[in-house]
């Protein structure tokens, strides 16, 4: 079985996003970019399936700017076998919407015929939490979102999902789409020898036009602003003072 893993290049998890003064978006110039953390978990899960003999090949795919090839090299260094870069934007500030990404991914799935797609549940830039579900819809496949456990057995997958109030386990027929939640696994760090080896692994470059997908946005971003601030309050010196302040505030 082949596993396809979409990965997104996003602002690094540890960098605070800053809104541009003119309200046109978030400043991404000279900001450290990394693989979306949930996508790292997805890559790790795919590699573990290969190591367990349940997958033969792991293909990473990224859609966005040309620089996303660095993100794909990271996936290759972690253990993916090959990569596909679909260039769909020139400007690093352009975010391709999940619907357009899902349409390109559908075309990639049609060409590659994977038995399983594992994606991150959410990208930490647009926070949409949508691409996996949208891809499943376009393919007419089942979806197992927010996965914290994945067991592949023959042509079915048993997936434990993080839901409000606890966990839910469902069974889906392959091919299917799984989206990774936080506790699915802990992604490995790529070793230096593997980073060197990754440079020689195949990375195919395509464009959105190759797949005949129109990536023009459906949502026009009118403006981007800072959230309302919250003023710091006071420091209290003891538990007793805290209790009396809370009583004064009428919350206890």
């Amino acid at each position: 079985m082949k596993v396809l893993v979409p990965v997104k290049r996003v602002i690094d998890y540890n960098v605070k996003a800053r809104v541009k003064a003119d309200g046109s978006g978030v400043d991404l110039a000279n900001v450290k970019m990394s693989m979306n953390p949930f996508d790292e978990i997805a890559v790790e899960e795919a590699i573990r399936l290969k190591e367990a003999g349940k997958a033969e090949e792991v293909v990473a795919v990224s859609i966005g700017v040309k620089q996303a090839q660095e993100t794909l090299r990271t996936a290759l260094a972690m253990g993916a076998d090959r990569a596909i870069l679909v260039v769909a934007a020139d400007d690093v500030g352009t975010d391709i919407e999940p619907l357009a990404v899902a349409k390109i991914l559908k075309a990639v799935v049609d060409a590659e015929q994977p038995g399983l797609v594992i994606a991150g549940k959410q990208a930490i830039d647009n926070d949409m939490n949508a691409t996996g579900q949208m891809l499943a819809a376009l393919l007419g496949w089942s979806q197992a979102t927010f996965a914290s456990k994945l067991d592949i057995d023959g042509d079915t997958a048993k997936v434990t999902r993080e839901v409000d109030g606890g966990l839910q386990t469902i069974e889906v027929k392959l091919p299917t789409i799984v989206t990774a939640d936080l506790r699915l696994n802990e992604p490995r760090y790529a070793s230096l020898p593997n980073i060197m080896k990754a440079k020689k692994k195949p990375l195919e470059e395509k464009t959105a036009a190759d797949y005949g997908v129109d990536v023009s946005p459906r949502l026009e971003v009118v403006k981007t602003r800072e959230p309302e601030g919250r003023k710091a309050g006071i420091k209290v010196g003891s538990v007793d003072e805290l209790v009396s302040k809370l009583k004064e505030a009428g919350v206890i």
């Binding site: 999940p98 691409t131 579900q133 819809a137 409000d164």
Partner: peptide, 21 residues
């Protein structure tokens, strides 16, 4: 909710519209 986050993007894609989360 987690249920709606699971369902609504699927609905949007089936209608060929972009979801607004």
């Amino acid at each position: 909710t987690t249920d709606a986050k699971n369902i609504m993007p699927r609905v949007a894609a089936l209608l060929d519209v972009m979801v607004i989360s």
